[in-house]
Amino acid sequence: MTLITDAFDALAKSEKEAFGAPDHPVLVVQHPIGTVKVEEVNKRADAAFDQLVELLVKPEADKK
């Protein structure tokens, strides 16, 4: 799977298309993460955690 910030959403879509992998799982978190305080990064990580687990453990066919 791939983890990106939402600023790179269009690029990720383009890559999935280019590689013929429309179902490749991508976890999107809010941009930016490089210039926000570590507490905020932790909050975003916590918020994304359930979806991360879902993307990692679900069979490929069920992933969106």
């Binding site: 790179f8 690029l11 383009s14 280019a18």
Partner: peptide
Amino acid sequence: GGSYPGTTCK
């Protein structure tokens, strides 16, 4: 290459 500012070129 499909590099478009604002979408695939960031």
